[in-house]
Simulated scan of single mutants.
Amino acid sequence: MTAPPLDFDIRGLLNAQEKLQLLALPASKRRRLLNNASKRLRTPNRKRIRDQRNVDGSAYAPRKARRKRKMLSGLGKGLQVTRLSADQAVLGWQNRLVSRIAAEHQHGQTETMTLARLRRLGKSPDYGMPATRQQARALLKAGYQIRNGKRWKRPAPRWIVENLKSGQAGLILAQLEGHTKKQSWKIALPARDVLGATADQVREILSTVLQQTLNAPR
């Protein structure tokens, strides 16, 4: 899946005089105009991502898991002009993985997450950390016991947290529940406007940048 395009026919957003002025510009100035206009469009898109808002001002659809950290927080920083010519400018991301994540959220697709992908994103769990209380509860619910001399007993949640690592607890739980650890899983993503702008926003930016380009000494 490719990155969500910010696609406008700029000629349709200019008045008749501005169209003639645009057509009269040499290729170097048209290139400069598109570059400056794209960078100006980048600013409100970065702000929207920080504010967790769609183009129409509505809030992003929340995560299923209640986390305080903002969604897509790293995408705005990497947003840049990725391709530029006298006739076209593309606003997006150079990193293919980031670009794909943006597209999945933009279109509300089902995302396939893998352990390898989590590691590349720097989000893989630290299996050397102590087991969590959530893991302890899950283990006890699955029937986890420890040896006490010749007998077996149900440990306290505190014992699990203090004596098992997160990775160990995960493996034991998988064995008790009779399944292997998932290597990939599906995440349903609601549509969120990662990249976009209204026609009025684009029109205003284009008109301003066009006049600046026409009045520039070179």
Rank of each mutant, 00 (worst) to 15 (best):
143 G>C: 06
128 G>Y: 11
160 I>D: 02
187 I>M: 07
169 A>P: 00
159 W>A: 08
187 I>E: 02
149 G>S: 10
148 N>S: 09
188 A>W: 11
136 A>G: 05
173 L>R: 12
161 V>Q: 02
159 W>R: 08
190 P>F: 00
167 G>D: 07
164 L>S: 10
131 A>G: 01
171 L>R: 09
181 K>Y: 12
128 G>V: 09
126 D>G: 13
174 A>V: 00
140 L>T: 08
166 S>P: 10
175 Q>I: 05
141 K>C: 11
147 R>L: 11
185 W>Q: 11
158 R>M: 04
147 R>Q: 15
175 Q>S: 11
158 R>F: 07
178 G>E: 11
165 K>N: 12
172 I>G: 06
159 W>L: 07
175 Q>F: 12
166 S>R: 07
161 V>L: 00
167 G>I: 02
165 K>A: 10
154 R>P: 03
154 R>T: 15
139 L>T: 07
136 A>F: 07
127 Y>Q: 15
131 A>N: 01
189 L>S: 05
154 R>D: 02
137 R>P: 02
182 K>L: 15
126 D>V: 13
177 E>S: 15
156 A>W: 14
141 K>F: 11
177 E>H: 10
140 L>Q: 09
157 P>N: 08
173 L>C: 10
179 H>G: 01
153 K>L: 12
171 L>K: 00
162 E>D: 10
153 K>E: 12
154 R>G: 00
133 R>T: 13
159 W>T: 07
149 G>D: 03
181 K>G: 10
176 L>P: 12
188 A>P: 07
170 G>A: 07
149 G>C: 02
135 Q>D: 10
173 L>Y: 14
179 H>R: 15
135 Q>R: 00
156 A>S: 14
191 A>H: 03
154 R>S: 03
177 E>F: 09
186 K>D: 14
133 R>N: 14
157 P>Y: 08
160 I>A: 02
153 K>P: 01
170 G>R: 08
158 R>L: 05
157 P>S: 15
189 L>A: 09
131 A>Q: 03
125 P>S: 01
189 L>P: 05
131 A>C: 00
159 W>M: 10
182 K>V: 07
169 A>N: 04
151 R>V: 03
174 A>C: 05
179 H>Q: 11
143 G>H: 06
174 A>Y: 00
132 T>V: 14
151 R>W: 06
178 G>F: 05
181 K>P: 05
178 G>N: 09
173 L>D: 12
136 A>H: 00
157 P>A: 14
136 A>Q: 03
182 K>W: 08
136 A>Y: 03
147 R>C: 08
154 R>F: 08
129 M>N: 07
149 G>E: 04
182 K>D: 12
130 P>R: 04
130 P>N: 01
129 M>I: 06
144 Y>D: 07
144 Y>H: 15
153 K>S: 12
131 A>W: 03
145 Q>E: 06
182 K>Y: 09
171 L>C: 12
129 M>P: 01
137 R>S: 09
166 S>G: 14
